[in-house]
């Protein structure tokens, strides 16, 4: 709505909007409240104590490990940025790969994976980005095929993909054999063992 509102104000185009009707406030007792009043026990002390337990004048003292487990570890924010630079398409692709919104498919292209996406993204913008990236990839494959005319194009693409996957961001979604999607693991054997021990 808000873009439309601003455009309307900015250009004051069709002044045909605004025919909506609002209803003045009515005070109605809901059946559910009435039923609750009828049936629920009156335990003011317990209710009061629990109510106060729910309130805190300051932050909850949650340890960092617990926050990390819930995926909410506090970030260090802008202060920790070493270099001020704009987000590139490559940065966006990395973020989408890690977020599960796109994946490196087995045919070498990027593929949107909306059912796995954990981020709040604009699907049109993602589709545009993926489209652009795939156009470049196909052009690169044609270039490589032209330089290796005796090699089967499929093989060229496989080799490219193999090299490309090495530099894909850790945690990025990758299609494995038999169409199984999984995040790329970059843990060393020690780290993997450590993580397993903790779990």
């Amino acid at each position: 709505m808000h873009r439309g509102a601003l455009a309307l104000v900015a250009l004051l185009a069709a002044a045909t909007g605004g025919g909506c009707v609002s209803v003045s406030g009515l005070s109605v007792m809901s059946r559910s409240t009435a039923l609750e009043r009828q049936a629920n026990a009156e335990l003011p002390q317990q209710t009061g104590e629990l109510g106060q337990a729910a309130l805190s004048p300051g932050p909850e003292a949650i340890p960092r490990e617990q926050l990390a487990t819930s995926g909410e570890a506090p970030g260090l924010g802008v202060a920790s940025k070493l270099v001020a630079e704009a987000e590139t398409d490559a940065d966006r692709v990395d973020a989408l790969l890690v977020g599960g919104c796109v994946g490196e498919s087995s045919d070498g292209t990027l593929q949107t994976t909306p059912s796995r996406c954990a981020l709040d993204v604009d699907p049109d913008a993602v589709a545009q980005l993926v489209g652009r990236e795939n156009v470049h990839r196909r052009q690169v494959w044609r270039y490589l095929e032209a330089r290796a005319p005796k090699t089967d194009p499929g093989r060229v693409r496989e080799q490219w993909r193999s090299a490309h996957l090495q530099q894909v961001v850790c945690g990025g979604l990758v299609e494995g054999p038999e169409g199984k999607w999984a995040p790329k693991s970059c843990a060393s054997p020690d780290e993997a063992a450590q993580a397993e021990a903790v779990e």
């Binding site: 805190s56 932050p59 949650i62």
Partner: peptide
Amino acid sequence: DRPRARAAILEALGE
């Protein structure tokens, strides 16, 4: 990006 504060605020807000 302050989950500890967010935790406290969300519970109070819900109440």
